[in-house]
Design a protein around this nucleic acid. Structure first.
Length: 486
RNA sequence: GCAGGUGUAGUGUAGUCUGGUCUAGCACGGAAGCCUUCCAAGCUUUCGACCCGGGUCCAAAUCCCGGCACCUGCACCA
């Protein structure tokens, strides 16, 4: 089985995620996060948010449903409402535009007029020469309901970023007028993908963590740290280099120092979440694959099954979005600095949360010598921090363990109690859940008020008093850490 | 969306070609219990499936048609 197939199998079996709506036959592109997955995902989002809040970012939460005007201004509608034609003889599907003669391109069509045009000119399918051609609208945008009046049409947002641009002036005011300003937003995004695939890799409803960094173009407030280590770069000329972001910026591999800085931050975040640095690279987009709004883009890509998967896109959106919304809405997006007026430029690190979850799972999965699976999640993302068990249910051990669970859970909710099956089976269950520690109450506990703590990755066990254990969350327990390091 | 393949308990599978003792088998898993003084041990009991809808036939998990989902490739991918 492939890496992704292994993860999907584990995910269904252990409750990380599974396809949605299965009792009604399923709908492609939608997944439900189960008990473990929803905790894992929550931790990823929290780590992401904390990483940016800690450098002064502010957070915002805008609606998922947006009016058409937003996407007309942003360019999404134009870019993603393609007219296509479908040939009912050979099944070929192509852009309607490809049927037009050079001089006709640029002429405006809607579905009806395009269909009329096809009939009138007896246009033929370019692959089989049949004239059984139907013009259809194809859009990656999710429209809500139907409404003839453009100004009343609503869509699900394809990215959270627009919600930040729209309220730029309000946010800047909250930031007390200061640039640079970093605004973050997490939430759902919706794209009506043609072919959703590979579980969380390509979803039609997905979670994003977007960061919009607004910069005065005459300043350089962000520069990578000279001390940060090497990162795998692949530029748009196909050149692969191991460089620190600082050197990448210095040598001009990454032109913009702010871009290099956010590559560094992204690298730091992803590695701290559990993406394997050996299987992580930053790839510059080719000119031809740049989005309509961006002039440069570096993707963080994780290696899975021999393929590099985009998990974060760091785009230089320039002044495109603010300019567009300024022009179309008539609201000024300018910033004043004394006499000077300008529109800030924007660097956008956009994180695909679900894909990051997949990458973390794939890179954390270890198979032991005996063939058992251990998910070596970093402490910060593990769904549960600790499992609490009695060695046996009888002789009062379960009672002690349950009491320990009650007490411990009041200082750290990320714990789980289990008394079923053998002790080995319970350890194995928590290994698959990626729980870093397990606590076992045994016969000695009745006398010494101490328990055994077992470490997931090493299997190492140490003994510690219940009192010490319940006084501080296990991940912050210095005494315990000391015992394990001995 | 196209082409090809696949769809059996929570998971992995046997059975499908060649329709009938399939009252759908096995393993893992879940639950209850016994046993067990720390890494998926063993024993007992138990839970649980033929993707959905039509059709053919005396009879369909098995053959046919349609739908849905998944996989691979192509196309698409802000």
């Amino acid at each position: 089985m492939s890496e992704v197939q292994d993860i999907i199998e584990l995910a269904k079996r252990r409750g990380f995620f599974w396809p949605s709506y299965s009792i009604y036959g399923g709908v492609s592109g939608f997944y439900t996060y189960g008990p473990l997955g929803s905790l894992l995902k929550r931790n990823v989002i929290r780590s992401w948010a904390d990483a940016y809040l800690s450098i002064g970012a502010i957070m915002v939460e805008s609606p998922v449903v947006s009016p058409e005007s937003v996407f007309r201004a942003s360019g999404h509608l134009e870019r993603f409402n393609d007219l296509i034609y479908e040939c009912s003889r050979c099944g070929n599907r192509q852009k309607f535009e490809s049927l037009l003669k050079e001089e006709e391109k640029g002429r405006e069509f809607d579905q009806e007029s395009a269909q009329g045009y096809v009939r009138e000119r007896k246009l033929q399918c370019s692959s089989c020469r049949s004239d059984r051609i139907t013009v259809k609208e194809y859009s990656l945008m999710f429209p809500l309901g139907k409404n003839d009046k453009a100004e009343e049409r609503l869509y699900l947002r394809p990215e959270t970023a627009q919600g930040i641009f729209l309220d730029f002036q309000l946010l800047l005011n909250q930031n007390r007028g200061k640039l640079p300003m970093i605004v973050i937003q997490t939430g759902g995004g919706f794209r009506n993908e043609v072919a959703p695939r590979n579980a969380l890799v390509r979803l039609r409803e997905f979670s994003m963590g977007e960061v919009e960094v607004f910069i005065d173009p005459e300043t350089e407030p962000f520069r990578p740290d000279a001390s940060y280590g090497e990162v795998h770069f692949l530029d748009n000329k196909g050149k692969v280099e191991m460089l620190s972001p600082f050197d990448a910026s210095g040598k001009g591999v990454v032109r913009d120092p702010a871009m290099a800085y956010f590559i560094q931050r992204t690298h730091m975040l992803l590695v701290s979440l559990g993406v394997d640095p050996e299987r992580l690279r930053f790839r510059q987009h080719l000119k031809s694959e740049l989005a309509h709004y961006s002039s440069d883009c570096w993707d963080a890509e994780a290696l899975m099954d021999g393929d590099w998967l985009e998990i974060v896109g760091i785009a230089d959106r320039g002044t495109y979005d603010l300019k567009r919304h300024g022009d179309v809405s008539g609201t000024s997006m300018e910033v004043r600095d004394g006499e000077r007026k300008f529109i800030p430029r924007v660097i956008e690190p956009a994180h695909g949360i679900d894909r990051i979850v997949m990458a973390i799972m794939a890179h954390s999965r270890k198979v032991t010598g005996r063939g058992y699976v251990v998910m070596s999640f970093r402490n910060g993302v593990a769904p549960y921090h600790v499992g609490i068990f009695p060695l046996f249910k009888k002789d009062g051990l379960a009672e002690i363990a349950r009491e320990l669970y009650r007490n411990y859970s009041s200082i750290d909710a990320a714990c789980i109690y289990d008394e079923s099956g053998s002790i080995g089976k319970r350890y194995a269950r928590q290994d698959e859940a990626g729980t870093p520690y397990c606590i076992t109450v045994d016969y000695e506990t009745r006398n010494d008020k101490a328990v055994t703590v077992r470490e997931r990755d090493t299997g190492k066990q140490v003994r510690i008093s219940i009192e010490e254990l319940t006084s501080v969350p296990i991940l912050q327990n210095a005494k315990l850490a000391e015992k394990f390091s001995q």
